[in-house]
Design a protein around this nucleic acid. Structure first.
Lengths: 136, 136
DNA sequence: ATAATGTCTATCGTTTTAGTAGGAATTTCA
DNA sequence: TGAAATTCCTACTAAAACGATAGACATTAT
C-alpha cells in the first residue's frame, strides 16, 4: 500500500506544478485544495524541501514552490524520497540493497526471481513519468 | 514492502512444487529447509489451504501438498491471497476497489493516474508467472 | 510592532506485523 | 486400544509503522 505521506506528497507536488507560477503557495492553500490535514502536510513538504524538490519562503506571502521544471522531476526520485525503496524486497533494491537473513543463495530464491521482475516493471513506469506527466 | 507472510508463503509453495511429489510434506521440514519460524509458517499454510492452494493430511505421515500443478497456479492468485490487493491504492484495485475519501474526481487525480500504470505493470508480471516459473 | 507564515521537536493513539502459546482434533501404527 | 505424530484453531503479545496533533520558535512583509 502507498502511504498517505506519499499520496499527499504527490498531490501537493502536482498542485504546485499545475499552478505553474514560481510564486510561493501557502501550505494552507494546498491542504485545503487537496483535502489534507494541514499539519501532516507541513511535515511532508518539509521533507520535500530538504530533499531538493521544493523551495520555501517564510513570513507573509511565504509558502512553497517548485525548484525545477515539472518535466525535470522523475517519479523515481519522488517515490524514493517519499515512499522509500521501489523494490518490494531489500535484496532486489538498487538503492537500498540488503541481503536477506534467511535465503542462503539469492540466485536460487523464487521470491528474488519474481520481485526482480516486479521491481523492473515498476521502475519502468516511474522512469517514464515526470511530474509534468501527472498533470491532467 | 512485501510482508514476511507473503515471502514465506511463496517460498513454501516453491518448495512443495520443487519436491514434485504429491506426498504430504511436513511443516517442520518446510520450515527447516527455508529457515522460517515453524509456528508462523503453520498459520500461513493454513490460509493457503483454506484458499484452495494446498491440501493437508493430519497425523503421522501427514503434511501439506499442492492441489494443482505448479503451472496452473498464477502469481496473481497467490499474491492476492497472501499480500492482498496488487494495486498500491484502493481506487485502482480491480478486486478490492474503494473510493478515496479525499479526491473528488478520480479522473483528475495524479496519484490515480500513476498508480494505474504501476498496477498494470505489476499485473503483467504476476499474470506471466506461475509457480512453475519460480522453480530454479 | 504585529500578523502571517514556515521550522522544528516531541508526543500520541491506532493499526499492522510478526510472531508465540497452548491445547484440541485427527490419523497412523504398534 | 493407546501412544505418538501431526495438523487445526484461538487467543495473546511485543514492537514497529502510520497518521497524525500540539506547541513553541524563527523569519519576513507591512
Amino acid at each position: 500500500m502507498l502511504s498517505k505521506k506519499t499520496k499527499y506528497g504527490l498531490k501537493a507536488l502536482t498542485y504546485l506544478a499545475s499552478v505553474g507560477t514560481k510564486e510561493p503557495v501557502q501550505i494552507a492553500e494546498i491542504a485545503k485544495h487537496e483535502n489534507i490535514s494541514q499539519k501532516f502536510l507541513e511535515s511532508i513538504l518539509l521533507t520535500l524541501r530538504r530533499n531538493g524538490f521544493l523551495g520555501s519562503k517564510k513570513g507573509k506571502g511565504g509558502g512553497y514552490y517548485l525548484i525545477k521544471e515539472p518535466n525535470e522531476i522523475p517519479m523515481t526520485a519522488v517515490m524514493r524520497v517519499l515512499e522509500g525503496p521501489i523494490a518490494m524486497v531489500p535484496c532486489v533494491s538498487l538503492n537500498f540493497y540488503e541481503k536477506c537473513d534467511d535465503c542462503p543463495d539469492e540466485g536460487e530464491c523464487s521470491v528474488h526471481k519474481l520481485m526482480l521482475q516486479v521491481r523492473d516493471s515498476a521502475l519502468d513506469v516511474y522512469r517514464n513519468n515526470t511530474l509534468a506527466d501527472l498533470i491532467s
